[in-house]
Amino acid sequence: MSVLILSSLLGIGLILLLAEVLFIPGTTVVGVFGLVISLAGIAYAFLTFSSDVAWWITSGAVVLNMAAIIYGFRSGVWDKFSLKSSLKGGTYDDRLANLQVGMMGKAISDIKPYGKAMFQDEIYEVKSESGFIPVDSEVTVMRIEDNRVLVK
């Protein structure tokens, strides 16, 4: 019966450690719990068996647990969780390159203070400097700051 209890403790600890490494990396709760159960199995081995047998069981458990950790790192599971690309966008990405200060356009929605306006057959989101501007009104580009078009 003691061999069954010992193998259950060590097996559950190993399974939890493998689950931490392979399936749910980064949480550490499952891995720590698996390590605690493995240590409980080792302590049980020292309480139940002779010292020589307990040291053999300990070394076997350590080898199996280390093999599980090494396998987890070499299996490529961590590659699924790592970022391999980077964003290349920026705050100013030439969306407003065709606009110039002083251009005339037409409001295609109410601008209160944000809305849409058309300049040279292209629609832009604009902000009003002078409050509410009704739809179909003529608007003029007053300033272009970052990605905002200020109209009047």
Rank of each mutant, 00 (worst) to 15 (best):
G34H: 04
V32K: 02
P113F: 11
V53L: 12
G11T: 14
A40W: 01
G76A: 11
F132I: 14
G72H: 04
V21E: 15
L9H: 06
E122T: 07
Y124A: 09
S128E: 05
Y71M: 15
E138T: 11
S128C: 06
E145A: 10
F119D: 08
S137Q: 10
S137D: 07
G90D: 12
W78T: 09
S38P: 02
P113Q: 10
F23K: 01
S59T: 15
A61K: 07
A67D: 06
I69K: 01
L14A: 14
K80I: 13
S86P: 00
K80R: 14
V151M: 02
I69E: 03
N147H: 12
G76W: 02
T27N: 11
Y71W: 11
F132S: 11
E138F: 02
N65E: 14
V126K: 05
F119A: 07
L9K: 00
W56G: 09
G11E: 13
D136F: 12
S59A: 13
V101Q: 12
K116R: 06
D79V: 09
I5D: 00
G105V: 05
W78Q: 10
F33C: 10
M66A: 15
V149P: 08
V30W: 01
K116M: 12
M103V: 04
V126A: 05
E129M: 07
I69T: 06
V30S: 11
W56K: 11
T140E: 07
P134K: 05
I57H: 01
G72T: 09
A43P: 02
L35Q: 00
F81K: 12
V139A: 06
G11M: 08
V135N: 05
G41A: 04
A117M: 06
K112N: 15
L18G: 13
V3C: 00
V63K: 04
K106R: 12
G34T: 08
P113N: 13
W56F: 15
N98E: 15
D94S: 14
K152Y: 06
F49A: 04
L87G: 06
V62I: 15
T91M: 04
K116H: 07
V149L: 10
D110P: 09
L6G: 12
G60A: 15
I42K: 03
T91H: 02
T140C: 10
F81R: 07
S128A: 13
E138Y: 00
G131F: 04
F132E: 13
K106Y: 05
L39V: 10
E145M: 09
G41T: 08
E129T: 08
F73I: 15
F132Q: 07
Q100C: 04
Y124G: 06
L4Q: 07
L10P: 06
V77A: 13
V29H: 01
T48R: 10
A61Y: 04
G102T: 09
R74L: 12
A45E: 03
V101D: 06
E145N: 11
M1A: 14
A19G: 06
T27E: 12
S50C: 03
G105M: 10
G72D: 03
K127F: 05
L17E: 07
L17T: 12
E138Q: 08
I144T: 12
V21C: 07
I12A: 09
L6A: 15
M142P: 00
A54Y: 00
W78N: 11
S128Q: 01
A68N: 08
R95I: 10
G60R: 02
E20R: 00
K112W: 01
L35K: 01
M66W: 04
V63N: 00
S75G: 04
Y92T: 14
L17G: 10
F119W: 08
V139L: 05
D79H: 12
A68P: 04
